[in-house]
Design a protein around this nucleic acid. Structure first.
Lengths: 234, 234
DNA sequence: CGGACCATTGAAGCCTATCAAGACTTGTGG
DNA sequence: CCACAAGTCTTGATAGGCTTCAATGGTCCG
């Protein structure tokens, strides 16, 4: 799993259930609480006043929620699937971290991983084409799922199909595209026999090496990137 | 100025001079040292194997350089203008932070600010048009310059002209555009009388409110964003 | 079984990229 | 100090990719 030792503040913490679409935190709100995702999938995003939305990250079990420099959040977190989170006061987390240097270290390492994910996202949004971005997205979800579920081997058969519980719109806002473009890009990847769609919420990876090549994913599993470990923006 | 108390580890630190274009850290290299920018401007970027480059941030005096979860960097930092940095071992920083809870807090706050800047960048790259991105860029540089030089008032006349020491190519790679598009966007902003170019490396802001409106910069100085305080990726 | 919603596909338009040329700036050496 | 050369920036023409608008098809739920 993860070695994020600070997460033990959530041991025995009260839990909260979220329905799809339900918001856990909204931008601008008081950041008095922090959370740990126990089950389901969350989505972190930033929305402009005119309604444009940039999805920043998808969160998997054991991902922390509640990063903030100040006491107000600057992003929104909502449930993609029915989810369960553990809740603690920010205070409790601060105390835990202040008391234990190891937990402190683990916390800051987690923040750095979030930072690296954001750097990857910025690179995708600024430099990659639609098809490349979608390839990255699929591999990103595969990777995150792998970390979250503690699968050791990179070519574990469990990893050949990837779940996409979010809508096409969500993917579009994650990749800085429109949903129609996401659809077309799916079709293209399928035409190239890199993937196969299974319903609307699953893809089977048919050609992992080429998908990686397209995604330029030496930028993802390379020495530049940190090895196995959970993370997540927010 | 800044209240980044951890920066005092750089008091009396050895200094290093950089010429424009010179690299301070390169992606993949050992991250044994950390730095503080004393003078000049640095540029943080991430480059793909195929040569595509995403500029992540521009650094101003008193900005920290050397963020890393592991002991290898995952980005490149090079000088834009002739610059001077103070150098310390990562070890020295770690010790300083471990010894002093206040420094530790200051450090993590700095990391959070970097994170917020990256979120803003991702939003720009994913959601904004070329003209909007350039407007954001100008206001971003203005803001960062203000923080770095400790100018208190937001409408200080010093802030009406903004320095752009970097090349059009650098701006393009920052904004996820091509240099020709950056040029055209400059022309458009000028045609709208929002700015006026003064040579190739300065712009005068003629209409700050409208420039902000175009940039959607309530997403920048709004309650969602933290108030005066220095920061910088890397 | 029907309706609402979501995803895919098609056609046309717009924005940005690409290719190419000309203007300007900058730095250098006579 | 001026002149030249190299590099950078701007502008123009064209092309390509993504978006927009619209309609069809599929999926899920009541």
């Amino acid at each position: 799993m993860t070695d994020d030792s600070f997460l033990d503040v959530f041991d025995g913490a009260p839990r909260r259930r979220l329905s799809p679409g339900e918001c856990l935190v909204t931008a601008g709100a008081q950041a008095a609480e922090v959370f740990n995702l126990v089950e389901g999938m969350l989505m972190v995003s930033r929305v402009g006043r005119d309604g444009r939305r940039q999805v920043l990250s998808f969160l998997f079990p054991n991902n922390f929620v509640g990063l903030s420099a100040t006491d107000t959040y600057f992003f929104t977190v909502e449930a993609v699937t029915p989810s369960v989170v553990a809740c603690r006061s920010r205070r409790a987390l601060d105390d835990r971290i202040a008391a234990d240097p190891l937990a402190d270290r683990a916390f800051i390492n987690m923040v750095f991983r979030v930072l690296e994910n954001l750097v990857d996202l910025a690179y995708s949004l600024g430099q990659r084409t639609a098809r490349e971005r979608l390839a990255v997205c699929i591999l990103y979800l595969r990777h995150r799922h792998r970390l979250s579920s503690g699968i050791a081997s990179d070519d574990d058969p469990q990893l050949t199909t990837v779940d996409l519980p979010m809508s096409r719109s969500d993917i579009a806002d994650f990749l800085g595209l429109k949903k129609e473009t996401v659809s077309r890009s799916f079709t293209q990847l399928e035409d190239q026999s890199l993937i196969r769609r299974i319903g609307n919420h699953q893809v089977q990876i048919l050609n992992l090496p080429e998908l990686r090549e397209l995604a330029g994913v030496l930028d993802f599993a390379s020495p530049l990137r940190i090895p196995p470990n959970a993370s997540g923006v927010a």
